[in-house]
Amino acid sequence: MQNRRAKLIFIYIAFIGMAVAVLFPLYWTLLVSTTTKIALFEKPIPYITGFVVENYSRPFLTDLYGGYLLNSLIIASGNAALVLALAIPAAYALCRFKIRGREHIFFWLITNRMAPPASFIIPLYMIFSGSVFRGIRLMDTHLGMILVYCIFNLPFAIWLLKGMIDAIPVELDEAAVVDGCSYLGILWKIIIPVAKPSIAVTAVLIWLFSWNEMLFASVLTGTRANTITCGVLKFVTVVGIDWGEMAAVSIVCLIPAAILVGVAQKHIVAGLSFGAVKE
C-alpha cells in the first residue's frame, strides 16, 4: 500500500512537471501578447496584468496580417482538397490493383516525405520564376503554393490512406464487381463511404501541415500570397522586434492547431508516425 502511494505521488510530480514544461512557453507568449512594450523591459511578471488590444488589432486590422491569414486559409484548404482528390484514387490503385514495382513506389513515397525541403528550393525557385519553362509563372501565386505542398503532403496522404483502405475487406469490392459495378463505382460507392472517417483525419492533418509550413512559403511567395508563417518570421528578421505584436501573431497562428488538437487529438500521433502507431 505504502509503495503504491509513493508511486502515485511520483507519477503526479512527473505529470505536473510535464504539464508545466509544455505549457510554459505558450503561456509566456500569451502573456507577452497582452503586455505593452515598456512593461516588458521591466522585471518579468508571471501573470496577466492587463490586455493590450493594439498588439492584436494593429497587425491584423491595420497591417497586412489579415491578408496573410486569408492566404494561409486559401492555400491550406486548396492543398487539402487537391491532395485528397489525387490521393484517394492513388491509394485505391496501390491497394487493390496488381501494379509492378509497388515496393519501389512505396519506398519512393516515403523518401519523398523524408527529403529535406531545402534541397528542392533551387529547382522550384527556378521553375516558379519562369526561367525553366517560359510562360509558366507560379511565383507568388496561391495555385503555386497549393501545388508545391503536394511534394510532401501527397505521399503522406497516400501512405496514410493506403493503410486504411487495406483494412477494408476485399470481399466488399468483389461482391460489387459481381454485381457489375465499375472500379470507379467501387471507389465512389464503397471505399469512400467506408473510409470516410479516415479521409477526414487525413484532410485535417494535411491542412495543418500546409498551414504550418514556412520554408517554401518564405522563398516562393512575395506580397500577394504570403502566408501567416512568413508573417511570424517577418518580425524576427526586422531590426528591433515588436515583442507584443510578434507574440500576438504567433498566438493567432497557433489557433488552428489548438482547435485541431481538440477535434482530432487521437489521430495526430498516428498521423505523424505514418500510421505505425495506433492509439
Partner: peptide, 8 residues
C-alpha cells in the same frame, strides 16, 4: 499540443 504547432 506542441505536435500540431507551426515550427516557426
Amino acid at each position: 499540443l506542441p505536435l500540431a504547432m507551426a515550427p516557426v
